[in-house]
Computed example of a mutant assay.
Amino acid sequence: MIEPVIELSGVRRDFVDGPAALQDVSLTVGAGEAVAVVGPSGSGKSTLLNMIAGLDRPDSGTVTVAGTRVDRLDEAGAARYRRHSIGMVFQFFHLLDDLTVLDNVVLPAEMTGTARGEARRRANELLEVLGIAGHARAYPGRLSGGERQRVAVARALMNRPALLLADEPTGALDSASGEEVKALLRDLHADGQTVVVVTHDLALARSCATRTVRIVDGRIASDTVHRPTVGSRRHGTAVEVTR
């Protein structure tokens, strides 16, 4: 049985105005899965991401990630959890423009107290693997959108997180750069990284995930598994199984 990385049980999130953002959501994601959470604007998918990331708390239900009861953490505990257990990739990169590419990637390790020499070795390895080692001394503003997103992915992987969260990772990219990031996410999953992508783009979901969870009005409307072509790192013709 695959060990779960994410376990949500009966999660509900209410706001003062309007309907509940999440209503009785239960979800399990196993180690090594690549899951896309899709839905229209206002469906609750961003709220779900915030629950998993420890940026928001449920009004009821439980959130467990990599063995940590995230819903029980105080602010300081949630910050430590994010530094050690998850990596986050955002639509607009959130890189620090006054730091070099290498220093942007090193930063999460320095925040956990990793020795500088060890952190720089790890960062250089990631930049090499992700094909941007030649930009280590450059500043983010000199890079293309696709290159900046690769830097953001390297930074997110710096502390070897159990879970990589990607929030609309191709939303600010042109089509060519978007395809590069999709391929990168596929390769990370093929190498065993647990990935959750939150997006409204069904093409992105089908391209880099083997499972799609659709949220409508704060509830899980469907949970579909896509079985990739056997023997390929890329997702080929899929057989869909709705859970």
Rank of each mutant, 00 (worst) to 15 (best):
E128I: 04
R160A: 15
S85R: 13
S222K: 01
S207E: 13
F90V: 05
A154R: 08
E125W: 05
D187T: 13
T62E: 12
Y81H: 14
A203Y: 10
D14E: 13
Q23G: 09
L184H: 02
I215T: 04
G134P: 03
R137V: 12
A79G: 07
D71P: 04
D174R: 09
H135W: 10
R160C: 09
M1D: 14
A136E: 07
V196A: 03
I2W: 06
D167S: 04
D191Y: 03
R57Y: 08
I132L: 10
Q193P: 05
E179C: 05
D201Y: 00
H200R: 02
R12K: 12
L143A: 11
S43T: 08
S9W: 05
Q23S: 12
G54E: 08
V25D: 09
E179S: 12
L130Q: 07
L95P: 01
G192Q: 08
M88W: 09
T100E: 05
T64D: 14
R57I: 15
V11L: 11
G77N: 08
E179L: 15
L55T: 09
T237Y: 00
T212F: 00
S60W: 05
H189R: 10
Q23W: 14
E118V: 13
G39P: 02
S9H: 14
V151A: 12
V230W: 00
S26F: 04
R122G: 03
G236Q: 03
M158W: 06
F92M: 13
V101F: 03
D103I: 07
L143P: 02
D59P: 00
T237N: 09
